[in-house]
Amino acid sequence: MTLILDHVTKTYTDGPNRFNALDEVSLEVKSGEFIAIVGPSGSGKSTMLSIAGALLSPTSGNVLLAGENITGLSSKEITKRRLEKIGFVFQAAHLVPYLKVKDQLNIIQVLAKKRVKHGSDLLTHFGLQHRLNNYPNELSGGQRQRVAIARALMNDPQIILADEPTASLDSKRGQDVVKLLAGEIKDRNKAGIMVTHDERVLSYADRIVTIRDGKIVKD
């Protein structure tokens, strides 16, 4: 398996009170598989995605990326693994407003401290070759999300994590973006997880996992 959450719990403390945002959650995602995580607001979906993406550490349990247990690594090593192995697509594209489209991808190789030469190829693949010198405010919402997907693939990660990728898009553009994302995960043999409230895009997932009150209730 490319990604394994093994009995992961995330506990928060609010004064004398403690509550589990995640409670003994286990999930396995293999390469080429695209999973949708669904559930009501406050159920733990975003916490689960953040732990899968090494943005949060679990209170207990383990996270394995490509067979490596990253739970006990230093923050420096976790940051390195995140840059090397994980690509993120967020609700809004979160593009840097003062960078041109081509530079949105180039900044990833700067952060990762390695040269990657296929940025323009990725943008051409996504039909954005005529937008290389545009700024984010000159793009449509769907175009911005396509740039975000290209950026997530820039370092050829093993895992793609998408947090409500259709939230800022209309129905047609939302479905187009998720269809594109699902296809890239299949074609490039990545492990993919998408958190969504959008039932219209669930048909593109290989598996739907429901989470409620910090627990997986249907898998």
Rank of each mutant, 00 (worst) to 15 (best):
I70P: 02
D14V: 14
M48D: 00
L22N: 13
S171D: 10
G15P: 05
K30R: 14
N20W: 04
V38S: 04
K85S: 02
K186E: 01
L99M: 11
N106T: 05
N189T: 04
E33A: 04
R81T: 09
V195D: 08
M1Q: 06
R115W: 10
T59V: 08
Q109N: 15
Q175E: 13
T59H: 04
V8H: 05
L153W: 10
E184C: 06
P157E: 00
R82L: 03
V201G: 07
G87C: 06
L95P: 12
A66Y: 03
N20V: 01
F88Q: 03
A148P: 09
G61M: 13
I37S: 04
A92H: 07
M194Y: 05
T9Y: 07
Y204P: 08
T47Q: 10
S140G: 01
L122T: 01
S171T: 15
G214Y: 03
K218T: 09
T11V: 14
T124M: 11
L161A: 10
G87V: 09
L95I: 13
S50G: 12
F126Y: 14
K172T: 07
Q109H: 11
L181G: 00
E84W: 01
D163G: 09
I78K: 15
G183E: 10
K80C: 12
I185N: 00
I78D: 04
E164N: 09
L83F: 07
V101E: 09
L5K: 08
I216N: 02
D170S: 04
N62C: 11
I78P: 01
A93H: 08
V89N: 02
S46G: 06
A21S: 15
F34E: 11
F34Y: 14
I51K: 07
S203R: 15
R131D: 06
K100W: 09
G174D: 10
R144L: 11
R81A: 10
Q143P: 02
A148E: 11
G15Y: 02
D219T: 03
N20I: 05
S171C: 03
N17K: 13
F34Q: 09
L99W: 07
S26F: 07
N137K: 03
S50H: 15
R173K: 10
E199F: 04
I160Y: 04
F19S: 00
K190M: 12
P157G: 01
S46T: 15
P16Y: 09
K10L: 07
L123F: 12
E24G: 04
E68D: 14
K117E: 14
R131C: 12
L128H: 08
A36D: 08
D170Q: 10
G72N: 15
E33H: 02
S171V: 13
L111F: 15
Y204D: 06
H7A: 14
N133S: 13
Y98G: 00
V101D: 09
Q143R: 02
D121Y: 08
P165H: 11
M154V: 06
I160V: 15
G44I: 02
R18V: 14
F90S: 01
Q175Y: 04
N106M: 08
E199D: 15
A191Y: 08
R81D: 03
P136E: 14
D14W: 01
I193E: 00
A92G: 11
S46Y: 00
V101H: 06
T9P: 03
G214Q: 02
